[in-house]
């Protein structure tokens, strides 16, 4: 199939609900931990090497055909925060709806049956990429990029940050994104032989803790 499917899947306008989530940026802005483009870059770099790496590996493993149920359980174990787990399932459910319209497949249908409340978003992303005929590398890139593009876009709104500066942050992270995608795919291939324990479990403690803090606010701009 066409590699251009990756552009459709990774497009910020793909109707999968991602725009409603800040990837932890809203909490970090409120706590005063992101105040500028430099702070955003630090935040995104940390998220890329933790949540981004894990998401990339989960997505790549799903493309390789690792059982989505095992991947979903692995995602649960790697996401202690219940707020983040429920956000990931909500995003997974929305992505599944869009992906089934874009690349209908029995595997996507089965995912909907297995996970009525939604599977973790990176797992759905991987199965969607597989249905679109994409490679594990493509899914890993897509997941890793989403781990930083979401916070960057959200911070433009939260801080009235110059969109050019936010885009500059993403461009500067590109070489690291290459390395994260490589590591994610290598780990996904190991998981195929050794099981999901071989997947990375990198975690950012403040991402997890701040997600709980954020979920308890009465009013917020973003869902997570």
């Amino acid at each position: 199939m066409s590699r251009a499917a990756l552009l459709v899947l990774a497009d910020g306008r793909f109707p999968a609900g991602g725009h409603a989530h800040s990837g932890g940026a809203e909490a970090a802005v409120k706590a005063g931990r992101i105040t500028s483009a430099a702070g955003l870059e630090d935040f995104c770099r940390g998220r890329l090497h933790t949540a981004g790496l894990v998401a990339g590996a989960l997505a790549a493993a799903a493309v390789l055909g690792v059982d989505p149920r095992q991947l979903d359980a692995a995602a649960d174990a790697r996401t202690p925060s219940p707020a983040l787990r429920s956000a990931a399932r909500r995003l997974g459910r929305q992505l599944l709806r869009a992906a089934r319209a874009a690349w209908p497949s029995p595997e996507l249908d089965a995912l909907g049956v297995q996970f009525p409340k939604g599977a973790h978003q990176p797992v759905v992303l991987g199965v969607a990429a597989r249905s679109a005929g994409l490679a594990p590398e493509d899914a890993a890139y897509c997941a890793a990029y989403e781990s930083v593009s979401g916070p960057a876009t959200a911070t433009v709104r939260l801080l009235s940050l110059d969109p050019f500066d936010a885009t500059g942050v993403l461009a500067r992270l590109a070489p690291e994104l290459d390395r994260v995608a490589d590591r994610a795919v290598a780990a996904a291939r190991r998981a195929l032989d050794e099981g999901v324990d071989a997947l990375p479990a990198a975690s950012g403690p403040l991402l997890e803790v701040a997600a709980e803090w954020h979920a308890a606010w009465p009013v917020r701009l973003f869902a997570s």
Partner: peptide
């Protein structure tokens, strides 16, 4: 360590 470990997503 992988980048960003001292930043706002990890330890701040």
């Amino acid at each position: 360590a992988p980048g960003g470990w001292d930043g706002p997503a990890v330890l701040a």
